[in-house]
Write a protein that binds this DNA or RNA. Structure first.
Length: 468
RNA sequence: GGUGGGUUGGCCGAGAGGCGAGGCAACGGACUGCAAAUCCGUGUACACGGGUUCAAAUCCCGUACCCACCUCCA
């Protein structure tokens, strides 16, 4: 039985989907305003693991992960950079896709984009106005606000009372009835905003407020009620609170479970505040492989804060190398690691318990130790079973080294590998000769020389092997 | 002011009343000409002060420090 932590109820609950055998999932993706960093990607990886686990558990999964391509920041940044807002959003969108691909984040069922769903948003806003939960601003700005006071349940998701909330510092009262009312629609500011960022609506030209898009798109693709809504912890309030208020005020039950992933911090601070270029995905991938970064992210529980450091990432990479080298050696012995292996019970129980990836990882390491013990005995049913199981478990976490998603093997270019092999073989033959003559000094000198080139030598019963 | 989270061994990171998750590093042993890899073994860890209990890292009370959200944010 899968159990998940639900932010709304603050506890771990059995996962009971609305429709038997199906799971519908909506995750807030990014606002494409700047390059993706490690923190952004953590969220994607966490929910990717959820998606994969639900699939493994036999659910037919509909997974919607949106993208916000219009908002204040995109307009401001693009203006600063002297280019069109949609050009900036498009470029960042492509960079994000690239980062997802580099980390083997599986594609969702669909990735709707905010500007492609203006009619759905207008429809929802109209409904809210009709029901008396929203009103056009009295100041003629063309804004439309959600009336927080008209919805007594407001604050239920983040467990806050309206009265206890600090009024927004920028609470430029404008045409708001209550400072906590939030914008569903923003009237076009002709003097400062491009005409391309304004769409026609019953309230005049303008653009959507931030929260409405998710309610509208979730409704379109998943229906008025769906199973799980996810996102980063900071979205809990106001974004998710507002999404839920809008949807429910319009008579839609909305999400049954709310899941939020925790932060990656650097020097104890949230990444967005202390972001250096070194933490952007392309920069990290210059130093580590995508699969190593993914291992690092998956090894921590999704609700735990992670203090990012390259030292910890390096340790993780070493730890992953242990798993990978077992699989490589097992493949040498078995010819091939069988696909379609089964994860063991410990692993299954771990992931069923609110996606306990740390315990799941421990299960893999334990099994690898068992496999390493079996290795000297050569090919056997037991080794086959263990290796297949290890591979299956890694695959569920999106960490199967043999997954073509990781691109060509770590050896890189085949021609290059063949060329290096010839050269290294030559040296290894010389070393073998020296060893046969018990000329240890020469033998070790050759090994040192090869290692200095970044190539590791491993002496096995079948003779020496090299790897980069 | 309100809401939520954290503080675990040299390090990273799980767990959530009784049996020391796992990884990295270290040390000892096996293997090796020596290494590497692998295997076996080695650690009296739970911020502090009280309390509850036969038993507390885990529950309760208090203290300290850190962080997040309440404003755009994965």
């Amino acid at each position: 039985m899968l159990r998940l932590y639900d932010t709304a109820t603050s506890d771990v609950r059995d996962f009971v989907p609305l429709r038997d055998g199906e799971a519908s999932l909506y995750v807030c993706g990014l606002t494409v305003q700047s390059e993706p960093h490690v923190g952004h990607v953590r969220s994607a990886v966490n929910f990717d693991v959820l998606q994969r686990w639900l699939r493994y558990r036999g659910y037919r999964v509909t997974f919607i992960r949106n993208l916000t391509d219009i908002d204040d920041k995109i307009l401001i940044k693009s203006a600063e950079q002297g280019r069109d807002w949609y050009n900036l959003a498009y470029e960042m969108h492509r960079q994000l896709d690239r980062a997802y691909a580099d980390l083997n984040v599986a594609r969702p069922t669909y990735e709707p984009i905010a500007t492609g769903h203006i009619p759905e948003m207008i429809e929802l806003i109209s409904e809210l106005v009709e029901r008396g939960h929203a009103y056009p601003a009295a100041d003629g700005s063309g804004d439309v606000y959600f009336d927080v006071r008209s919805w007594p349940a407001y604050g239920e998701l983040s467990h806050q009372g309206i009265e206890d909330m600090e009024a927004a510092a920028d609470a430029d009262p404008r045409g708001k009835r209550d400072p906590r009312d939030f914008a569903l629609w923003k009237g076009w500011k002709q003097d400062s905003e491009p005409a391309t960022a304004a769409w026609p609506s019953p309230w005049g030209r303008g653009r959507p407020g931030w929260h409405i898009e998710c309610s509208a798109m979730a409704g379109k693709y998943l229906g008025p009620a769906f199973d799980i809504h996810g996102g980063g912890l900071d979205l809990r309030f106001p974004h998710h609170e507002n999404e839920q208020a809008q949807a429910r005020a319009a008579g839609r039950p909305f999400a049954s479970y709310w899941m939020h992933n925790a932060w990656i911090t650097t020097s104890g601070e949230k990444m967005s505040k202390s972001l250096g270029n070194s933490l952007l995905i392309p920069a990290v991938l210059e130093r580590f492989r995508g699969i190593e970064l993914r291992y690092y992210l998956v090894a921590a529980h999704y609700r735990s804060h992670v203090e990012f450091s390259f030292e910890a990432l390096a340790e993780a990479a070493t730890g992953f190398g242990r798993l990978e080298s077992f699989l490589e050696r097992a493949a040498d012995v078995l010819g091939e690691i069988p696909a379609g292996g089964e994860p063991n019970d410990v692993f299954v129980a771990a992931l069923d318990d609110d996606l306990g990836t740390p315990a799941a990882m421990a299960a893999i390491h334990d099994l690898v130790r068992e496999g390493n013990r079996l290795l000297p005995e050569g090919a056997g049913a037991e080794l086959r079973r263990v290796a297949g199981s290890v591979r299956a478990m890694l695959a569920i976490l999106g960490l199967d080294p043999a997954d073509p998603a990781w691109g060509p093997g770590t050896g890189g270019d085949e021609k290059l590998t063949a060329a290096v092999d010839v050269l290294v073989r030559g040296l290894l033959d010389q070393r073998a000769a020296a060893r046969a003559a018990k000329d240890w000094a020469s033998a070790d000198a050759i090994r040192d020389q090869i290692q200095a080139a970044g190539i590791e030598i491993e002496d096995t019963p079948d003779g020496p092997k090299w790897s980069i």
